[in-house]
């Protein structure tokens, strides 16, 4: 368990940001649900619960989720009942337990780029912008490739569109982290493919979407391409070889839904 020396609850994001950047051994506190696994000693815990970042709104084809919204807020939001045919709600409601979803925040999940996050795998193929206090707006595609930012995540913005999306996940039991998660989105001839729980963070494929865009529909060719370009590793849930196999199976299932 981690140790913390001091704790503050700033009233604004500006104040929180100043504290965060001026103290190199400070930590932003979202839900705190994964922090307890750390063994660090943290000088200053900065709790964002009074910075008005708990909201979900929909306007002009954009859905904004404040970073302090919990996974349950997303699951219970009327906005996500209909958006993307209820897929976001479905994916979030299958994450771990009800108790955990009531505390874990969207900001904590996205900012930390949690490898096992199913939600992040899905977000990676949607039109999502990640909004930081100081850095401003970054597309999720760029954010997933960047080194960690010393900045405060304010919200994520999802653009509603006609993407055809399939989300696939394989877990040993319902109540577990995934062995692998995979999302495919299609808009006409444009494809996006993300693979998460590799066990690393969700990664967007580059070559395989091109193959599909160029008209290749041979399942073996596209599956081999995806398995070749995505790096997998071993952990206690599965070997890299097993993950490669599961990736091929999930990818075929996803393609059958979007082609």
């Amino acid at each position: 368990m981690f140790k913390a020396v001091d704790y503050v609850r700033p009233k604004s994001i500006g104040e929180a940001h100043d504290l965060f950047v001026s103290n190199t051994n400070s930590q932003i506190l979202g839900g705190g649900t994964y922090l307890y696994l750390s063994k660090r000693t943290i000088q200053l815990l900065i709790d964002l619960q009074e910075t008005s970042l708990k909201y979900i709104s929909q306007k002009d084809g954009k859905i904004r989720i404040g970073a302090m919204s919990t996974l349950s807020d997303v699951e219970e939001s009327d906005i996500f009942k209909n958006a993307f045919n209820g897929l976001v709600k479905k994916v979030v409601s299958d994450i771990w337990s009800y108790q955990l979803r009531n505390a874990a925040t969207v900001g904590g999940t996205v900012y930390s780029r949690l490898g096992f996050s199913e939600f992040l795998t899905l977000l990676a193929v949607l039109d999502v912008d990640v909004v930081f206090h100081n850095t401003g707006v970054i597309s999720i595609k760029d954010f997933l490739k960047m080194p960690p930012l010393r900045d405060i995540l304010k919200e994520i913005v999802i653009t509603e569109n006609d993407l055809k999306v399939s989300f696939q996940v394989f877990k040993r039991t319902h109540f577990d982290f995934p062995v692998l998660s995979l999302a495919v989105a299609r808009c006409d001839d444009e494809f996006r493919i993300a693979v998460g729980s590799r066990p690393g963070c969700a990664l967007l494929a580059k070559d395989t979407p091109k193959l599909l865009s160029e008209g290749c529909r041979d399942l073996k060719t596209v599956c081999d391409s995806l398995i070749r370009e995505i790096p997998f590793a071993d952990d206690l849930r599965a070997s890299s070889e097993y993950r490669r196999h599961v990736c091929g199976v999930l990818f075929k299932r996803a393609l059958s839904e979007v082609l």
Binding site: L29, G31, G32, L45, S72, S97, Y98, Q99, L100, A103
Partner: peptide, 27 residues
């Protein structure tokens, strides 16, 4: 379990169940 898995530490916070083993008292 102290790993957010077993649920025996559940309490209600603002009427919703949460895990008190991975929530801080200060929060």
């Amino acid at each position: 379990c102290d790993t957010a898995s077993c649920g025996v530490c559940t309490v209600l916070m603002d009427s919703k169940p949460i895990l008190s083993c991975c929530s801080l008292a200060v929060q």
